[in-house]
Design a protein around this nucleic acid. Structure first.
Length: 328
DNA sequence: AAAAACTGCAACCGCTCTAGC
DNA sequence: GGCTAGAGCGGTTGCAGTTTT
């Protein structure tokens, strides 16, 4: 009865992934989609635990990931969400497109935590460290946090736009609204739902403010990095973690048959410039688009540089849900 | 120049929740 | 309803790269 164990752990490889393993995993998932993770390593020819494959894909190989440091606004978003919901990294990550829970968690532990401590704010309670016992309100400490952050930003970046008053104001408005709705409305609404609504509102606010993605977003597949050699090379033993930013240069996808209908994609890009989701409506669109990114317009010159503006690059930051469930 | 200390991030571990048997 | 595995999540570790001594 029951199911088979996830993996027998005997003879399974651990540690950093090689580019060869990455290629196998990407190749497998792009051709077969995300099915049962337990079967992925076996079918993909990997000596890894399915769990490990899943993590590698979600945290690193997914094409919709943004790379690079979190922007100031993403950082503020993380701080604010953390103040509301604590260490629920996946929840926080779900409101930051292209960011993974692991990435946010790491960023929190390595950067934000220190920053907050430096400012005299307890990263756990979000209250001033020296004044925890007092009755200072959370709003006051938050205000202090934002002021400190802004001050720091001013020092680092002379040109910055201050969105906080709008951000905070709208957030508080939404919070009040949700409170009222909850108290006036039925008692069927759970605390989690209210929390979700608040967070969603917060994200809407963020969206309003930023009008899309932040400007420093960097897609994992940078167009100029996409080079698909036709000749198979010997398997690399270098770890992907050390030279990971360029691993796609070595990526081979020998099993693909790329269609070359890039023009339609290009038109699609223009037509739906403000709609990231529609671009990836179905498998064909995705494959075509990936083909475009990799092969360029004629499909022949595989080293053609795709010199796309950032707005087009952001198309790569497609809805994560569509990747996870919808596309395949 | 070499060693030590520090930093940041990818990956692993172990737990919980959910769903199949 | 109980047992088990899959999936997901948060905490922790290990290691490569960087900075300091």
């Amino acid at each position: 009865m029951g199911r088979q164990p996830c993996c027998d752990k005997v003879g399974l490889k651990k540690g950093p992934w090689t580019t060869d393993e990455d290629n196998k995993l990407i190749n497998f998932i792009l051709t077969n989609g995300q099915c049962c993770w337990r079967t992925v390593p076996k079918l993909a020819g990997l000596f890894r635990c399915g769990k490990s494959c899943r993590l590698r894909w979600i945290n690193y190989l997914r094409p919709d990931l943004k790379r690079g440091l979190l922007s100031e606004y993403e950082e503020k978003m993380v701080i604010d969400l953390h103040a509301k919901i604590g260490n629920r990294w996946s929840k926080i990550a779900s409101h930051l497109p292209g960011r993974t829970d692991n990435e946010i968690k790491n960023h929190w532990n390595t950067h934000i935590k220190k920053k907050l401590k430096k400012m005299g704010i307890d990263p756990v309670t979000h209250k001033p460290l020296s004044n925890i016992a007092t009755h200072q309100t959370q709003d006051q400490s938050k205000q202090q946090l934002y002021q400190s952050l802004e001050k720091e930003q001013e020092n680092q970046q002379p040109v910055s736009v201050d969105f906080d008053p709008i951000f905070e104001h709208k957030f508080n408005q939404n919070k009040e609204l949700k409170k009222q709705e909850t108290s006036i409305g039925s008692s069927n609404i759970t605390e989690a739902e209210v929390e979700d609504n608040i967070i969603t509102s917060l994200f809407d606010t963020m969206d309003d403010v930023m009008n899309g993605f932040c400007t420093d977003e960097v897609p994992i597949i940078e167009p100029h990095e996409i080079l698909v050699p036709c000749v198979p090379s010997s398997s690399s033993t270098s770890t992907s973690s050390s030279n990971s930013t360029n691993f796609l240069e070595k990526l081979q996808l020998p099993d693909f048959e790329w269609s070359c209908n890039y023009n339609s994609v290009n038109n699609n890009n223009d037509a739906n410039n403000n709609d990231n989701m529609e671009l990836w409506d179905d498998d064909d669109d995705f494959i075509i688009s990936l083909n475009f990114l990799i092969n360029g317009d004629d499909g022949g010159d595989k080293k053609q540089v795709f010199d796309a503006p950032h707005s087009q690059c952001s198309k790569m930051a497609m809805e994560s849900e569509s990747w996870a469930y919808g596309l395949f």
